[in-house]
Write a protein that binds this DNA or RNA. Sequence first.
DNA 1: AATGGAACCAACCGCCCACGA
DNA 2: GTCGTGGGCGGTTGGTTCCAT
Length: 306
Amino acid sequence: MKRRSATEGMRKGPWTPEEDAILFEHVRNNGARNWSLVSFLGLLPRTGKSCRLRWVNKLRPGLKKGRKFSPEEEQKVLDLQAQFGNKWATIAKYFPGRTDNDVKNYWSIHCKRLARARHDQRGPLTDISNQVANLETNALSVASPEELLASEEQEEAQGSNGKGNSDSGTSSTILDPQPDPNPILYNPIQNLPPQPAPFDPIFDLPPLPEIHYLQSTPRSVNLSQDQYRQSTQFFEGEPEVGSMDLGQTQIIDPNEQCLNYEHGLMDSGLDQFMDNVPSVLPPPTEFDDLDDILDSFEQPVLKSPY
DNA sequence: AATGGAACCAACCGCCCACGA
DNA sequence: GTCGTGGGCGGTTGGTTCCAT
């Protein structure tokens, strides 16, 4: 008898804003855990894994959206990869707002560029290979592209399964050359500027000293019957009917990190809500931390006209 | 304007581990 | 001790966008 697959009947592919809103609501109610509950309760035809991934990579507050890696971040990725190997989750902890997927994707592109540069170096150097070579020598004092590639090739030759064992010492013959002309080769981290304490990419938020959140989103507005009906439909997961103007949530943050929270919230689907709701702005409210902002959203936002 | 390749991004898959029954 | 399950992680793939020709 054929066993029913856990993923049978589950939806795959891109997430819709409606699904995002439902998932966000689940996290608000249950926290970022019990992912299987989402499908178990019939909230979404998605596997728990899929839900978790969506939250971690796209919905959770604090994510940097659509920003390429800066040169500083690129260098840090290179240095940290040299130290930790392909421990992307570990490396991502040094990049508030970045996910392991971000770092992993960046690195895979980086490897492709290296491979192409190396291939090109066997023939005439092209502009791109020169650029990559310059990038590597400037940004990476850890190892030359050749050393990195040789290291990777040796790992492959040794039958490495690629599961993050580059810190197992097998690559030391490559990265452990002669008397070190460049100490960073052995301990790349020590030459980095002081790093913030790694934070939990799931729940912990990066340190945000002396931050004031000014919240001016209407907590209480008067709606027409039609507006109220539409708004509550959204809450129940119906197709989007408007957008909640979280853009009116003014968040002042000297480190700009709170702006990321704002974007994270907006991108989570709440921005597609209450677009046509009249704004009656109460005096700005100060919050001490992000949790207070999130809590404020759990309070009634709408006044029933009934 | 059309096209092909590179870059980028989102999401799935499979493996592994921790934990509770 | 074992088994099942949930969750975490790294690898991979497929789709989309960008850009040079």
